[in-house]
């Protein structure tokens, strides 16, 4: 039984190393393509629209509602502690540092990362990826680069917009509290909320965008030639993206917001 357990753990470890190696290889290919000017601009613009514009509504709704919930809790707790004048600052810190980047990353992973895995996976099953290669076109250059760049640009932009929406949502709930008047919420921001807090959150979002594109495209390009595996690749892309976003968030938070 012990041998079986060790074997199973060893297999999982080797599988993890293999996955890590393959995604690193893909990431290097992406950057080689970018640095040698192989990015197709027309396809990239399409992806910018697909990833950014089409994800805007769901990101805004998510961040607005989350901001309202945080605003409600903060105003209640701050009222008890007698620091109601700082509610705006508390909400904006929460949104810009953590909730904005992480929630947008989840939304994009679910909506865009899964779509990338499904689209590229079905292209692999129907030999379209092979057809591209047969036409002397590198699938990484043609399919992955535009998606990667689009995520790298649009996820931070969505986070910035989401931060503003979230803080505004917090305002709506906070002003309903009897202890907070309409001006004190935004008056607490100058002098308390630092520019770096917002910028660091946007930087985190750029890393999350890279993770989502990398995982989604890798899952699609490496899924086996069976329709059922496209479904599995799609699910895996969301699960892996979210887990990696959690891990990256921990590392980036300690680096970007030192004590």
């Amino acid at each position: 039984m012990l041998i079986g357990l060790v074997t199973a753990l060893g297999r999982q470890f080797i599988s993890f190393l293999s996955y890590f190696g393959k995604t690193t290889q893909l990431h290097l290919s992406i950057w080689r393509g970018l640095l040698t000017g192989r990015l197709g601009y027309r396809v990239t613009v399409q992806q910018l629209a697909e990833i950014g514009v089409n994800s805007l509504a769901i990101a805004v709704v998510t961040l607005l509602l989350s901001g309202m919930v945080i605003g409600y809790h903060m105003s209640v707790q701050a009222g008890k502690l007698g620091v109601s004048e700082l509610v705006g600052w508390f909400v904006s810190e929460t949104m810009c540092r953590e909730l904005g980047p992480v929630l947008v990353a989840f939304v994009v992973a679910a909506r865009v990362g899964s779509a990338m895995a499904a689209e590229l996976g079905s292209m692999r099953v129907t030999e379209q990826i092979d057809a591209l290669r047969a036409m002397a076109t590198d699938p990484v250059d043609y399919l992955v680069l535009p998606r990667y760049v689009a995520c790298l640009v649009m996820v931070p932009l969505l986070v910035f917009i989401g931060d503003i929406v979230g803080v505004t949502g917090g305002y709506v709930m906070a002003v309903l509290s009897p202890s907070i008047n309409q001006t004190v919420y935004f008056d607490s921001l100058p002098g308390n909320l630092e520019v770096w807090t917002v910028v660091a959150g946007v930087i985190k979002a750029a890393f999350f965008g890279m993770i989502i594109a990398l995982v989604g495209c890798h899952q699609g390009l490496t899924c086996r030639r069976a329709s059922e595996d496209v479904g599995r690749a799609t699910t895996r892309s969301v699960v892996y993206s979210i887990m990696l976003v959690y891990a990256a968030n921990l590392v980036l938070t300690t680096i970007l917001y030192p004590k």
């Binding site: 292209m123 129907t126 030999e127 379209q128 092979d130 057809a131 591209l132 290669r133 047969a134 036409m135 002397a136 076109t137 590198d138």
Partner: peptide
């Protein structure tokens, strides 16, 4: 490999057309 593939063509058993493009775009792709 792509340099060699530029001088080759391949017809796949199930055509393997790029399904997000029109017929003309598929033919014009290369």
């Amino acid at each position: 490999l792509n340099r060699i593939r530029e001088q080759m063509g391949m017809c796949f058993q199930y055509a393997a057309l790029l399904d997000s493009m029109t017929v003309a775009d598929n033919v014009a792709f290369a």
